[in-house]
């Protein structure tokens, strides 16, 4: 039954299950990630921060969440 309500996406290269209809803001909340510390790409397109609430994720979407780390 539950399977009807979940969708599998690729999150940073790893299969990840979300509830149907999840938007980017909800995904970040679920992951406990602050949006001002990351940038997100969905299917190769960068998503502007103000569009997170409107971007509903679909099955098989490729989501990349990146941050700054130490580098030279």
């Amino acid at each position: 039954m539950n399977n009807l309500n979940v969708a599998k996406i690729q999150l940073n290269g790893i299969p990840y299950e979300i509830n149907d209809g999840t938007n980017l803001n909800e995904l970040l909340n679920k992951l406990k990630i602050q949006k001002n510390k990351v940038a997100i790409e969905v299917n190769g397109e960068i998503v502007e921060k103000n569009k997170y609430p409107n971007l509903i994720l679909n099955k098989d979407d490729k989501v990349e969440i990146v941050q700054f780390i130490g580098g030279g």
């Binding site: 999150l11 780390i69 030279g72």
Partner: peptide
């Protein structure tokens, strides 16, 4: 300071952040 852009580790999100 120079910084690099990399994927967040989804499996271990409690790692400290440079910021």
């Amino acid at each position: 300071v120079t910084v690099a852009v990399r994927r967040i580790n989804i499996l271990d999100k409690d790692q400290p952040l440079l910021m």
